[in-house]
Design a protein around this nucleic acid. Structure first.
Lengths: 330, 330
DNA sequence: CTGCCTTATAAAAACGTTTAACTGCCATCC
DNA sequence: GGATGGCAGTTAAACGTTTTTATAAGGCAG
């Protein structure tokens, strides 16, 4: 690989002149300028980004830690983030934390040591301590999607409470009073918010809250059993799956019990994605503005990079309700 | 951020000694060693990866260019690749080419200038010329999934011909003789291979090949119309969707025409993914070994990094047929 | 006791940039 | 006409490492 020295030698100038031509630093006479350009072309010179980074203390690289790229919600976010970042001249160092807090921590340190300019994290736990340390050390950090915790870090997410409330209200308006709520885990505050939205919607409608109706599904296969049992015992007329994967679980349960869908049991999902069109009738769901989430996170991070030191922001985007056919009037 | 100089000063030694302690270079007396370690701890020193990269001319970073992270097949590959890379101490610079050849080219150059140690590309076109140039310039390149072209680059993919042939044979064994083949584009040799597998399976069964039965669906919305028309005119008893997205299209068409599925028309898909369980009856499909594909690609690339200069390899992995309920006997 | 080898450490060079400081040079001005 | 001042270019320093080379001290043989 040709270096700036090679170019300088070939063009018969100093390396400073080459640099000035390439970066438009100072005035360079037309003759030398064209000589440099010519040399650059014949050598196929491309500046070494690593050296530039060392010198400028900027890598033009953002670290991104995601719990599971395979989930279409997250891969949608990654796409949005990558696009926004690229538009502004940044590249993305992508890491998969596999929902593992320890791994996430290691990954973040590794990214920091690679001198990423900023970090976007979809954490596995609310508000991890180590991120605050990294931020204190001067690394801008933006939390995405899972935004529980104090206002000590920039956070971009969705108004989960409101979204779940609107979704539940919709179910209630459709005549449902016994609504099974499926949650992945109540450890995550955004899921807790969804549960709270559900609860308050019920309360506002004067429907008593029954804890037996909310099922924490975790990750193990036993969760299907739990859902089956709950459906049989509680005989809900609707299921609110508060996560895209949980829609899958709900569908499995409904099919296993040979319930008529959506006549006997309605389903409201969270998150919309291409493949949900495979479901018939088509899934009614609360949909998050994925594109906007990614854009906002990137935006805030880049402003921090530019030196914005205003107090940490918390951006809450609203969700939409996509009404299709999987929820039936009662 | 503390640098090695700070550590040296605090420990009262030279920076060389610090480096030797940290990297186990040469012998350092126990006293100095512990002094250094102490200083490292109190300063929270972490080596600057950029400087290390500049010095060592290795970034421990792999570039990855994918046409669409949002497609579960690709996001599965990304996951596998990221995992394999991480296991071996590499990070992933991820880029989304959006199926745009020009963008892909720009991204590759950007990655090269950032001095990635190697490149894994799922190209938008068969065997792009520029990759050969990059390889000639000393950047190891592995092509993944779309592996048409000469044997001048390392390639890892699936035996598309065989996979499509096996799939088609299965349909034929189930009594189907009029099989609609949906392809995304015949520009890509792996899709052409699938079409050829389809054709040869027909030939082997003595079924005449009817070009009217293969539909090139492209990306525009008009493709649904084309499929609808073909189904109505040709009255196939089965559809072979040679791409995961095409399964979606097929399902839409089947529903639009209110055909009984799978009684009146069977569907065979390509690629298996979590969300296909939403389809009832569950999709029968040719499935690619995603994990193995990612692992192999990473493996080969890392061997090249270690200096393996053997002739370019072409690794063809076999597919499986996952028989479920969407194909019905005739 | 001098000279040589070993050994633990320090100094310096190098990786490839950018940029601040410096050097001639020519025009300008009192 | 000599001091002043921009101008176009070069030299050199710096970014933070690793590694090669140099150095000082100590042990040992002659």
């Amino acid at each position: 690989m040709a270096t700036i020295k090679d170019v300088a030698k070939l063009a018969g100038v100093s390396i400073a002149t080459v640099s000035n031509v390439l970066n438009g630093g100072r005035y360079v006479s037309p003759e030398l300028r064209s000589a440099v350009l010519q040399a650059v072309r014949t050598l196929g010179y491309v500046p070494n980004g690593v050296a530039q980074s060392l010198r400028s203390r900027k890598t033009q690289t953002l670290g991104l830690i995601v719990p599971d790229i395979t989930n279409p919600f997250f891969s949608g976010l990654v796409q949005a983030l990558e696009g926004s970042a690229r538009d502004r001249g940044y590249q993305m160092l992508l890491c998969n934390s596999e929902e593992n807090a320890e791994l996430e921590f290691d990954l973040a340190l590794a990214l920091a040591s690679r001198q990423v300019d900023g970090l976007i994290v979809i954490p596995t736990q609310d508000s991890p301590e180590y991120l605050r340390k990294l931020k204190a050390d001067g690394l801008p950090v933006v939390l995405l999607d899972r935004i529980g915790g104090e206002d000590d870090l920039d956070r971009v997410g969705v108004d989960n409470f409101q979204a779940a409330r609107v979704g539940t209200e919709f179910l209630i308006r459709q005549g449902h009073r016994k609504i099974l709520l499926l949650v992945s885990t109540l450890e995550l505050s955004n899921i807790r918010d969804r549960a709270e939205g559900y609860r308050q919607a019920l309360a506002a409608a004067g429907i008593p809250y029954d804890p037996e109706l909310v099922i924490e599904c975790g990750k193990d296969a036993s969760s299907l059993e739990a859902v089956l049992e709950a459906i049989q015992q509680q005989q809900p007329t609707a299921i609110f799956a508060s996560t895209n994967r949980l829609s899958l679980l709900a569908i499995q349960a409904i099919r296993r019990l040979k319930l008529k869908f959506p006549e006997e049991i309605s389903l409201l999902g969270f998150d919309d994605f291409e493949w949900s069109t495979l479901l018939e009738p088509y899934l009614t769901a609360v949909v998050q503005p994925i594109e906007a989430l990614g854009f906002q996170a990137c935006q805030i991070l880049l402003e921090r990079l530019k030196g914005d030191t205003s107090p940490p922001r918390r951006v809450l985007l609203p969700c939409d309700l996509a009404v299709r056919q999987s929820v039936q009037r009662r």
